[in-house]
C-alpha cells in the first residue's frame, strides 16, 4: 500500500512537471537562506559566548596586602553579587607574567630598580553580570573597596557584537520567512495542478470505495516530497559551501573572533532542516486540498 501511495505521489510530481520543479527550487532557496543565516549566527553566537566568558574586571590595589589579609580580601570580593570568581595576582606574579610576554627581551625587566607593577584582583563576572549594565554595577561595587586604587574592564563591546548577531538572525529569519511563504504558495499551485490532473483517479477511487486516507495521502505525500527534495538540496548546497569556505575563513576567524573552527549543523540541526522542508511542502499540499474542499 505504501508503495502504491508513494508511486502515485511520484506520478503526480511528474505530471506537475515544471511547476513542481520551481516549487522545489523555491524551497531550496528559502531553506538555504534560513540555513546560512542560522550557521553564521550560531557561529557568531559561539564567539559571543566565548567572549562573555573572557570578560574580566581588574581591580588594581593601592599596595600589596600582607599575606594574611589576602584570603580575607578575596572572600569579601567573592561574596559580592555578580562575582563568579576572583584571583589574586601579587606584584611578583605580575612581573613574571610580564617577563613571559616579553620573551627574549625579558632582560630589561631585571634592569628595573624596583617592581613597578601593582598587585591586582582579577574578577570573573557571573553570566548575569557579563552584560554592560551588570559589568558597570560590578565595577562601581569594586571601586569602593578601600584597597582599590583603580578598576578597569567593561562588557560593552561584547554586547555591541551580540547586538549585531541578533540583528543578523532577525534579518535571516525575515528573508527566510518571505521565501518560505513564496515556497508554500508555489507548492500549493503545483498541488492544485496535480489535483486537477488527478481528478479522474479521485473519481474512480471514490467510486470503488477507497478510504479517504488513500485518496488524500498521495496529494499530501507529493507536497512533502517537494519539501524534502528542496531541503536536501539546500543542505547539500550549504555543506558544499561550508566545506569550501570554512577552511579558508578559519585562520581569519580565529584571529578576529577567537574561534578556532567554524561549525556546521549538528545532527539535530540537519534533521530540523529536513523536517522544516517536509513541513513546508506538506503545508503547501494541504492548503491546496483545503482550498478545494470548503
Amino acid at each position: 500500500m505504501l508503495g502504491f501511495l508513494v508511486g502515485e505521489a511520484l506520478r503526480d510530481l511528474r505530471r506537475a512537471g515544471r511547476v513542481a520543479v520551481s516549487a522545489v527550487v523555491l524551497i531550496t532557496l528559502s531553506l538555504a537562506a534560513l540555513g546560512s543565516f542560522w550557521l553564521v549566527s550560531s557561529n557568531l553566537g559561539r564567539a559571543v559566548a566565548k567572549w562573555r566568558d573572557r570578560v574580566r574586571i581588574v581591580v588594581y590595589l593601592k599596595r600589596e596586602p600582607p599575606g594574611g589579609d589576602v584570603a580575607a580580601l578575596l572572600e569579601r570580593v567573592r561574596v559580592m553579587p555578580g562575582v563568579a570568581g576572583v584571583v589574586f595576582i601579587g606584584k611578583a606574579d605580575a612581573l613574571r607574567a610580564l617577563k613571559q610576554v616579553l620573551g627574549k627581551d625579558a632582560g630589561v625587566v631585571d634592569q628595573l630598580p624596583v617592581n613597578p607593577l601593582p598587585a591586582s584582583l582579577e574578577v570573573t563576572p557571573s553570566a548575569a553580570a557579563a552584560t554592560p549594565e551588570g559589568a558597570r554595577e560590578l565595577l562601581a561595587r569594586l571601586a569602593v573597596l578601600p584597597e582599590a586604587d583603580e578598576v578597569a574592564g567593561s562588557a560593552d563591546w561584547v554586547e555591541r557584537f551580540s547586538h549585531w548577531q541578533r540583528l543578523l538572525t532577525t534579518i535571516g529569519l525575515g528573508v527566510g520567512a518571505v521565501l518560505a511563504a513564496a515556497a508554500i504558495l508555489t507548492v500549493t499551485t503545483a498541488t492544485t495542478l496535480i489535483l486537477h490532473a488527478r481528478r479522474h483517479e479521485t473519481e474512480i477511487m471514490r467510486l470503488v470505495g477507497a478510504s479517504e486516507l488513500t485518496i488524500r495521502l498521495p496529494v499530501l505525500l507529493q507536497g512533502m516530497m517537494q519539501g524534502l527534495a528542496g531541503a536536501t538540496l539546500a543542505l547539500g548546497a550549504l555543506l558544499v559551501t561550508y566545506s569550501v569556505v570554512a577552511p579558508r575563513l578559519e585562520p581569519l576567524v580565529s584571529l578576529t573572533l577567537g574561534l578556532s573552527q567554524l561549525v556546521f549543523f549538528t545532527p539535530v540541526g540537519v534533521v530540523a532542516l529536513l523536517g522544516a522542508g517536509t513541513l513546508l511542502g506538506g503545508l503547501g499540499g494541504w492548503l491546496a486540498r483545503a482550498a478545494r474542499e470548503p
Binding site: 502504491f4 483517479e201 474512480i204 477511487m205 467510486l207 470503488v208 477507497a210
Partner: peptide
C-alpha cells in the same frame, strides 16, 4: 458494488491492465 457508465471512464495515462489493477491497489 461494481459500476460501469456509458463512457468507460478509463484513466487515459494507464494501460488496460493498470486500469484494472488500480482498483486492487487502491484497496490494498
Amino acid at each position: 458494488i461494481g459500476v460501469v457508465f456509458q463512457d468507460a471512464k478509463l484513466l487515459p495515462v494507464r494501460t488496460v491492465y493498470e486500469n484494472v489493477a488500480f482498483v486492487l491497489r487502491v484497496l490494498g
